[in-house]
Amino acid sequence: MIPLSWYLVLSALLFSIGLFGVLARRNAVAILLGIELMLNAVNINLASFWRYGNPAQMGGQVFAIVVFAVAAAEVAVGLALIISIYRRRKTVLAEEIDLMKW
């Protein structure tokens, strides 16, 4: 059986990639993608801790499903915002969305 640590390493890698995407990318859509990656890294964690922890309890699976739902909602709202901003300002670059900055 593949040890738990492999999953965790995978998850950590995935999270780091996502974090890097959030911090480093200028494109708002890419930032959103980074967030999705970080959420899915969490999901991997949840699923693997469930499987290796106490499989009789369904907590990990349920959490994972909640995260899916939230992520889906988030992407929906986030993309809607980005599209709306794009229609107005013809850009999706984060640093150009600075209307409320002093």
Binding site: L19, V22, L23, A24, I31, A94, E95, M100, K101, W102
Partner: peptide, 17 residues
Amino acid sequence: LRPVQTGRIQQYMLASF
């Protein structure tokens, strides 16, 4: 201290990270 407040979430997050 005003310049610190860039309004760029990515910088904030980097800082918090």
